[in-house]
């Protein structure tokens, strides 16, 4: 993370960074050029922090959803959080073009889509887990269609590019204020998932067995669902849609340390954080203009995943 602070358009040596951070933390007035201080403290540091939070949130909620739905193919976006948030953001871009409202709309629609998926899942009570995923797919596709509708109606010179870039994900807008606002749901969600991490193991045995093992399944599932949704919606509303992290980081964790969520949850948190930090660092350095994150997460994560698959022989699947 510290390393990420040195890299960028203004390459700075580690020693300068350390001094700037030190002076800032103690409220001292340093003798550095203003540009240095702004670059490190106001641009790179919040961005790195945000990357850590977003990566960790997406990865850990992906892990939780995979366990909860007993399905290794689901990701943090399965219940429609990403699609809902994408629609909320696009709508806000077209209607208001105000950053705060984009966050609020994205968060609200992200949460709304999970609530909708949940309600659809409840229609059919015999196998609630499967219908919940089905509900998520339905809600996701409806919101994707709505995003297309908004794109179609958007002004092609100003609003459309904004929507497209938002949908591809970026941490470029990171400021401390964003971190304060979106960090709260992310932190609560992650803390909640960390607390119930072992119970996710038991929930992955299926409703009937989990209940006979002594878990109050409706309460525990609701809790996991709420925490994972908060973490994902918090992440998506500031960073846009970053694919791949919520699906593959959990699997990389599974290959490295196994499937016990007691270990896997903290490992996903740190892997997700490191991965997104690294990807974001590349995003802002390899070319003159920023590369959207989703492109890089897939381009980097894909080959790495295949490499791990080969090396660990899939870990017992």
């Amino acid at each position: 993370m510290i390393f990420s602070l040195t890299i960028g358009r203004y390459p700075l040596p580690l020693s300068v960074i350390a001094k700037i951070m030190w002076f800032r933390l103690w409220g001292l007035v340093g003798q550095f050029p203003d540009t240095y201080e702004v670059v490190v403290w106001d641009i790179r540091f919040p961005r790195a922090l945000l990357g850590v939070f977003v990566g960790a949130s997406l990865a850990v909620s992906g892990t939780a959803f995979q366990g909860l739905f007993r399905n290794p193919l689901v990701s943090s976006g399965t219940l429609g959080v990403s699609a809902g948030a994408g629609f909320g953001a696009s709508l806000a871009i077209v209607l208001f073009n105000n950053t705060a409202l984009i966050y609020i709309f994205a968060f609200a629609f992200g949460v709304l889509s999970v609530v909708l998926s949940y309600l659809i899942g409840r229609f059919y009570s015999a196998t609630p887990t499967i219908t919940l995923v089905l509900g998520g797919i339905i809600v996701s596709s409806v919101f994707s269609a709505l995003v297309s509708l908004v794109k179609y109606a958007a002004d092609p010179y100003e609003q459309l590019p904004a929507i497209v870039f938002w949908l591809m994900g970026s941490l470029a807008s990171a400021r401390y204020s964003d971190l304060m606002v979106a960090g709260i749901p992310m932190a609560i969600g992650m803390a909640g998932l960390f607390a119930v991490r072992w119970q996710i193991n038991v929930l992955s045995m299926g409703d009937r067995e989990a209940r006979s093992l002594g878990i109050n399944t409706s309460v525990a599932k609701g809790l996991v669902l709420a925490c994972a949704t908060m973490a994902t919606a918090g992440a998506v509303c500031v960073s846009g849609i970053i694919g791949w992290v919520g699906l593959v980081i959990p699997h990389i964790g599974r290959m490295l340390i196994g499937n016990d969520n007691k270990l896997l949850v903290p490992v996903s948190i740190s892997l997700g954080a490191c991965f997104l930090l690294l990807v974001d660092m590349l995003a802002r350095t390899i070319s003159g203009s920023e590369i959207p994150l989703s492109i890089l997460t897939a381009l980097l994560g894909g080959p790495f995943f295949v490499y791990l698959l080969k090396k660990t022989k899939g870990g017992g699947w």
Binding site: Q199, L213, L223, D260
Partner: peptide, 24 residues
């Protein structure tokens, strides 16, 4: 579902003795 180890599976038998927010 997931390739848990045998020990991890048997440990799930202890869920009734483990609080909601704690580990075995």
């Amino acid at each position: 579902t997931f390739p848990y180890t045998v020990k991890e599976i048997v440990l799930m038998g202890r869920a009734a003795y483990t609080g909601m927010f704690t580990s075995p």
